[in-house]
Computed example of a mutant assay.
Amino acid sequence: MSGVGAVPAPRAAVAVRVRRLLAHELRAAAALGRWTARRKHGVRPGDHAAGYTGPQTPLLYTLLCVSVIETVALAYLIPWPAVHVTVLVLDVYGVLQVLGLHAACVTRPHVAGPGGSLRIRYGALFDLVVPADAVASVRVDRRFPAGRLLALSEDGVLDLIVAGQTAVTLELTRPLAFTRPLGSTGEARTVRFHADDPHALVAALRPPALT
């Protein structure tokens, strides 16, 4: 029996999701400052940083332009001051959300360490550290899977999809646990993800990773 005052499971799950969403918001805000200063997160001397924003950048900037146009248009169309201020705040918040997502992705690239380790990321939403001894093989492998950002198949293939595509397939020597953006977990035996220059990333994963 659970103790008196124990938090019901559904309520606890919601609390975890809310905390993670707030954490993502804070990381995105920090990323805006890091992006302005042209600094990368978690990239040390000797590391190979691999960007992955190429396919999604035009989409994000298009969304940003639409949001700005909408904000300006509504400023002229809405005659009620209270409603106008509310809509303006929501629109500005939406613009900052888009900018924060892009900044987080730019400043948190994939990172290949000189010893053969690999850190696979998507902004502040996903972060998987792959030790060198967990890398069985890695290859350039362009695919165009359907689905959302993260898709895990029944046989343990994890797709980290950027704008409908992946470019690198990483086979693992053992299953690795990962955490989804809202806190649920899973295990992957193979990870497929995007890199703007997949050949350079694969080349950066030198032995012992490929031995």
Rank of each mutant, 00 (worst) to 15 (best):
P208W: 12
L21F: 08
E25C: 06
S137Q: 14
A31P: 05
A30M: 12
L63K: 06
P181R: 09
T166D: 05
V7D: 02
E25L: 09
L176K: 12
G3Y: 00
T86A: 14
I78W: 02
F193Y: 15
I69L: 15
P131R: 12
A134G: 03
L201G: 05
E187F: 12
L176Q: 04
L182R: 10
A177T: 15
G3L: 10
V111H: 04
L64H: 14
A204R: 03
R20C: 01
A50P: 12
P10L: 09
G54T: 10
G94V: 04
Q165W: 06
V18Q: 06
A188D: 04
E154Q: 12
T169W: 02
A15P: 01
A6V: 14
H84E: 10
A13T: 05
V135M: 03
C105G: 10
A177N: 04
D127G: 02
D196H: 05
P10K: 03
L99C: 12
H24P: 02
L74E: 13
D91C: 14
L158K: 02
A75R: 15
L150W: 06
G51Q: 15
V87H: 09
H194S: 00
V16H: 09
L170R: 01
A204D: 11
S153A: 11
P79V: 09
F126S: 05
G42V: 01
D127M: 01
P175I: 04
Q56C: 03
H199A: 15
K40P: 00
A124F: 02
P109S: 06
L21C: 10
R139M: 10
L77V: 13
V14D: 11
P181F: 07
T190C: 08
P45W: 09
L59Q: 14
P131A: 06
P79I: 10
V87F: 13
V129G: 02
D197P: 00
R19H: 08
L22R: 14
P198F: 11
H41M: 06
H110S: 03
A103S: 14
H199S: 14
R143W: 00
V191Y: 01
P109F: 08
P208G: 11
I120W: 05
A112N: 10
K40Y: 15
W35H: 13
I78V: 15
G123R: 02
P145A: 00
A6N: 08
A209P: 02
D197V: 09
R142Q: 04
L77K: 05
V4D: 12
R38Y: 05
G183T: 09
F126G: 02
L201Y: 11
V140K: 07
V72P: 05
R206H: 15
V202S: 05
A49N: 12
P145G: 00
L60D: 02
A203H: 13
L74C: 13
F193Q: 00
A188I: 07
P131S: 06
H102S: 01
T169D: 11
S153E: 06
H194L: 09
L160T: 04
L118G: 01
L152A: 13
D141V: 01
M1K: 03
Y52T: 07
M1R: 11
L88F: 12
T86R: 03
R27T: 07
E25V: 10
A136M: 08
L88Q: 10
F193W: 07
G123F: 02
T107N: 09
T62D: 03
A146Q: 13
Q97N: 05
S184Q: 11
P10R: 01
I69W: 13
A163Y: 03
V7R: 13
A29F: 13
